[in-house]
């Protein structure tokens, strides 16, 4: 079993907390995990990407090769397409629909979403709105993780345990908020797939 995931976003959106949950869940269940991160200059509002690999065999490279990602999980829709060359032919695209427009030449939204909707294996959702409903817009990351949960070949309950573990020291209320956001994302993704 090998799963290769590209996590994408804009510096400051916190994609690393998504990969931390997946990483801990995989490690706690005896799988090997490697995850590359971006630190430094790009974190200042630039494009950021994290490669996450999970396997029941030892993993060597922390980087994913072109055409080998099972999923691209992006918290920003244009960033989703930036890493498209990494995706396997039948790979999965999961993206937040909320754009981050911090460059003057950002593509028109209509054109952008038309390009994304060309790919049948996709889930698009408005993570901020779902996170707000769950209690706090800052849990948008966990909404995105929830949307991916049924496509990671990891039991979603493992991810819930990892969320509990990671947010434990911030108190029960924060744990519950993140679990709610996770479940809201999961539900929304399944609804989306039922309607596409």
């Amino acid at each position: 079993m090998d799963i290769n995931i590209i996590l994408a976003g804009v510096g400051g959106q916190g994609i690393l907390s998504i990969s931390a949950v997946i990483g801990v869940a995989a490690m706690e269940h005896g799988l090997d995990v490697k995850q590359s991160e971006v630190h430094g200059m790009s974190q200042r509002g630039g494009a950021v990407v994290s490669h996450l690999r999970i396997s029941d065999q030892p993993i060597f490279s922390s980087l994913i090769s072109m055409g080998e990602a099972d999923m691209i999980l992006s918290v920003e829709p244009m960033e989703l397409l930036r890493y498209k060359p990494y995706l396997k032919k039948d790979g999965f695209l999961i993206s937040n629909t909320k754009t981050v427009v911090n460059i003057p030449n950002y593509p028109e939204e209509q054109v952008l979403f038309a390009a994304i909707e060309k790919y049948p294996n996709r889930v698009l959702l408005d993570a901020e709105t779902l996170a707000k409903k769950a209690g706090n817009v800052r849990a948008a990351n966990m909404v995105m993780l929830g949307a991916a949960a049924d496509h990671l070949a990891l039991e979603p309950s493992y991810l819930e345990e990892a969320i509990k573990h990671i947010f434990e020291r911030k108190g029960e209320r924060i744990v519950q908020l993140n679990l709610d956001a996770f479940n809201a994302g999961r539900e929304a993704a399944n609804q989306y797939l039922a309607t596409v």
């Binding site: 630039g46 494009a47 090769s65 397409l81």
Partner: peptide, 26 residues
Amino acid sequence: ARSLRIELPESETTPELVENRPPRLC
């Protein structure tokens, strides 16, 4: 892989509408 002369499928290119997003001051 390429230096080992392994035949690899031609990789796709990033869709043209994707623009560079360099780092910037907050």
